[in-house]
Design a protein around this nucleic acid. Sequence first.
DNA 1: CGAGCTATTGGACCAAGGTCCAATTTACGG
DNA 2: CCGTAAATTGGACCTTGGTCCAATAGCTCG
Lengths: 213, 213
Amino acid sequence: MPPTVFVVDDDPSVRKSLERLLRLSGFHVQTFASAEEFLACRPCQKPKEPACLVLDVRMPGISGINLQQELVKAGTLLPVVFITGHGDIPMTVQAMKNGAVDFLPKPFAEEELLAAVEQALAKAARLHQEAAEKAEIERRISTLTPREYEVFRWVITGMLNKQIAAELKVTEKTVKVHRARVMQKMQAASVADLVRLAEKGGISPPRRDSFPE
Amino acid sequence: MPPTVFVVDDDPSVRKSLERLLRLSGFHVQTFASAEEFLACRPCQKPKEPACLVLDVRMPGISGINLQQELVKAGTLLPVVFITGHGDIPMTVQAMKNGAVDFLPKPFAEEELLAAVEQALAKAARLHQEAAEKAEIERRISTLTPREYEVFRWVITGMLNKQIAAELKVTEKTVKVHRARVMQKMQAASVADLVRLAEKGGISPPRRDSFPE
DNA sequence: CGAGCTATTGGACCAAGGTCCAATTTACGG
DNA sequence: CCGTAAATTGGACCTTGGTCCAATAGCTCG
């Protein structure tokens, strides 16, 4: 199935020609006449397949820049390619700071847009991949009991079972049990794996209770 | 000691006023009349302290954009704040894609420039920190003998000594010795530490020789 | 050629990790 | 009030990892 390109532009003729161009290039296209209309389409903002957004900067109502900001704030991983007839430099800077893939002033060559869209879709694929991995890791973490989670965080600091036991004020035996469950649930074959999973999952090491020195 | 701000602009009056503004704001300032002049200053491109570059886009000879590109290619970690009198959107996009912190069309408010410079210096501090860490890790890795390096790469995959020994076609004993040296030289207290050092140092796991299945 | 570094291995020993068995206590929801 | 899940602990046993000792062989550099 071809990747989807969303197009948001208030000018019907632009929508029409963009849709035609993109379809002929093999993409699935969905157009919207305004930012509001796009926002109304919930599934569009968290597509299951990699997708990207071709967005007009200047539109009645919510501007393209504002729409992008909203999407970023919402954590939507939808790379944006801006097109504009009347853009200025501060606007461009803002858009790029917010992670836009490209910012094309009209008129632009068709190849320019297509290149930008390709790049945006490539980025979308990367983001999707990373998000999926992170989600899977977080899913596994969510199956840990509170105690197991504690042990998990200590283990990835490289501490010995004995030390962790002292930290949690339990016996080494208990730590071993929890630790084994953590390895199982996280599907890690070694401490090395566990450390990598923790890094990707953004797990911070705990701060110690006791001060040995 | 205050951080340094490099200023490159062909207009003497701009240099003068920028230098004055930045000095009054507490920065150490060094000005250049052209990209060539800046490039001639070798130490400026790899400063020991965090620094940043305020750069005019349009200049005779090498343009600001090209200078930035050269610096990026050379791996210089010098955040750039662009200023320009006659910039256009494609130029802005290019500059931002190359990692510019900001792109200010003249005339701009003094506060705008100062804010951008502050941000650039903050970024410089981060980059410096990261580069220093990476350099230190690479220094440690460079002290490893070839064999130790091999063992290092296998250890961080989480393999057992026995398995590594089979992989290298030596006895488990030998692996233990190398492994101990690796831990020493890398200054790692645990496998968890070692894995993190490897990640930061960009060490890739080796591909296996033998196929157990 | 001898000095020094590297790679290799052996033995002995202890500490630590992992696993199988089973058990008790606590807390929460139906 | 009972069943389930979580947390805790014990014992026995084996595998691994880490460390101390010492030794041999190949190699390169003065």
